[in-house]
Measured scan of single mutants.
Amino acid sequence: NQASVVANQLIPINTALTLAMMRSEVVTPVGIPAEDIPRLVSMQVNRAVPLGTTLMPDMVKGYA
């Protein structure tokens, strides 16, 4: 099963992502692949992401 990127904390809108904000977890539906975590660092979210939410490509500016 593919691990996805999950929010490790509440991430406010327009926040630049850091490693501490993300974790890898096997979830359904599948979100951004966990191997993309290094690429996500310093990218901004375009909405508030609650703790435990799977990051989807449309939630991260410049990812999709």
Results as ranks from 00 to 15, higher is better:
Asp36Gln: 09
Ile11Thr: 02
Asn1Met: 15
Asp36Asn: 15
Asn46Cys: 06
Pro50Glu: 07
Val26Gly: 07
Val49Trp: 02
Leu10Cys: 15
Met56Lys: 06
Ala20Gln: 11
Asn14Arg: 09
Val5Pro: 02
Gln44Tyr: 14
Pro38Trp: 12
Met56Ala: 11
Ala20Pro: 06
Val45Phe: 01
Pro33Val: 14
Ala3Lys: 06
Ala34Ile: 11
Val26Ser: 09
Ser4Thr: 13
Ala3Phe: 12
Met59Lys: 02
Leu51Phe: 14
Met21Tyr: 05
Thr54Ile: 12
Asn8Asp: 08
Gln44Cys: 09
Ala20Ser: 15
Met56Gly: 07
Leu55Thr: 00
Glu25Ile: 05
Thr54Asp: 00
Asn8Trp: 14
Ile11Met: 06
Thr18Trp: 03
Val30Glu: 15
Ala64Ser: 15
Gln44Ser: 13
Tyr63Gly: 03
Thr53Lys: 05
Thr15Asp: 06
Arg39Trp: 05
Gly52Asn: 14
Leu40Asn: 01
Gln9Ala: 15
Val27Tyr: 03
Ser24Leu: 08
Pro12Asn: 13
Gln2Ile: 10
Ala48Thr: 14
Val26Thr: 07
Val6Trp: 02
Thr53Leu: 10
Ser42Thr: 14
Val30Ser: 10
Val6Tyr: 03
Arg39Lys: 14
Leu51Cys: 06
Val41Ala: 08
Ile37Ala: 11
Ser4Ala: 04
Leu40Pro: 00
Val6Met: 09
Thr53Arg: 09
Arg39His: 11
Val45Tyr: 00
Asn1Trp: 10
Asp36Gly: 05
Val6Ser: 03
Ala48His: 12
Met43His: 08
Asn8Gln: 08
Leu51Pro: 12
Arg23Leu: 05
Ala16Leu: 13
Ser42Asp: 09
Ser24Cys: 03
Ala48Lys: 06
Ile32Phe: 03
Pro29Trp: 04
Ile13Phe: 13
Val41Glu: 05
Asn1His: 07
Val27Trp: 02
Ser24Asn: 07
Ala20Glu: 14
Ala7Phe: 02
Gly52Asp: 08
Val30Ile: 09
Ala7Arg: 01
Pro12Ile: 09
Asp58Glu: 11
Pro38Met: 11
Gln9Val: 08
Val60Gln: 00
Pro29Thr: 06
Asp58Cys: 15
Asn46Arg: 14
Asp36Ala: 06
Leu10His: 09
Val26Trp: 05
Gly31Asp: 01
Asn46Ser: 12
Ile32Tyr: 02
Val5Leu: 05
Pro38Asn: 15
Thr53Asp: 08
Glu35Ala: 13
Val27Gly: 03
Thr18Ile: 07
Leu40Ile: 11
Val45Lys: 00
Leu19Ile: 08
Thr15Cys: 04
Met21Ser: 10
Leu51Trp: 14
Ala34Gly: 07
Ala48Asn: 10
Ala16Gly: 11
Thr28Ile: 04
Met22Glu: 01
Gly31Trp: 02
Leu19Phe: 14
Thr28Pro: 02
Gly52Thr: 03
Arg47Phe: 15
Ala20Asp: 04
Gly52Cys: 05
Pro57Asp: 06
Tyr63His: 03
Leu40Cys: 03
Ala3Asp: 14
Pro50Arg: 08
Ala48Phe: 06
Pro38Glu: 06
Ala64Leu: 11
Tyr63Trp: 13
Asn1Lys: 04
Asp58Ser: 12
Ser42Gly: 15
Ala20Asn: 09
Thr53Ala: 08
Met21Arg: 04
Ile32His: 00
Pro12Ser: 10
Asn1Val: 15
Pro50Ile: 05
Met21Asp: 03
Gly31Lys: 01
Leu40His: 01
Val6Leu: 09
Arg23Trp: 04
Met43Pro: 00
Asn14Gly: 08
Val5Ser: 03
Met59Ser: 06
Val6Cys: 03
Thr54Tyr: 02
Pro12Gly: 15
Ala20His: 12
Asn46Trp: 13
Met43Glu: 05
Pro33Arg: 10
Asn1Cys: 12
Val49Met: 05
Ala20Gly: 06
Gln9Tyr: 10
Leu55Lys: 00
Ile11Trp: 01
Ala20Val: 14
Glu35Ser: 13
Ile13Arg: 07
Val30Leu: 11
Ala7Met: 05
Ser4Phe: 04
Asn8Ala: 11
Asn1Leu: 14
Met43Asp: 03
Pro29Leu: 07
Gly62Pro: 11
Leu17Gly: 01
Thr28Asn: 09
Ala3Gln: 06
Pro38His: 13
Ser42Leu: 14
Val60Tyr: 01
Gly31Asn: 00
Ile32Trp: 02
Pro29Val: 07
Asn14Val: 03
Leu10Met: 14
Ala7Ile: 06
Val27Ile: 10
Gln44Glu: 06
Asp58Gln: 08
Ile11Glu: 01
Thr28Trp: 04
Lys61Trp: 10
Val49Ile: 14
Pro57Trp: 12
Lys61Met: 09
Gln44Arg: 13
Asn14Ala: 06
Lys61Leu: 10
Glu25Tyr: 09
Asp58Val: 09
Arg39Met: 15
Gly62Val: 05
Ile32Lys: 00
Arg47Thr: 06
Gln44Ile: 11
Leu19Pro: 04
Tyr63Phe: 14
Pro33Asp: 08
Ala20Tyr: 15
Leu19Cys: 11
Arg39Asp: 03
Pro12His: 10
Ser24Gln: 08
Pro50Val: 09
Arg23Pro: 01
Met59Thr: 08
Val30Asp: 13
Leu40Tyr: 02
Tyr63Ser: 03
Ser24Asp: 12
Gln9Arg: 13
Glu25Gly: 06
Val45His: 00
Thr18Gly: 04
Met43Thr: 07
Ile11Asp: 01
Gln44Gly: 05
Thr54Lys: 05
Pro50Gly: 04
Ala3Ile: 11
Ala7Asn: 01
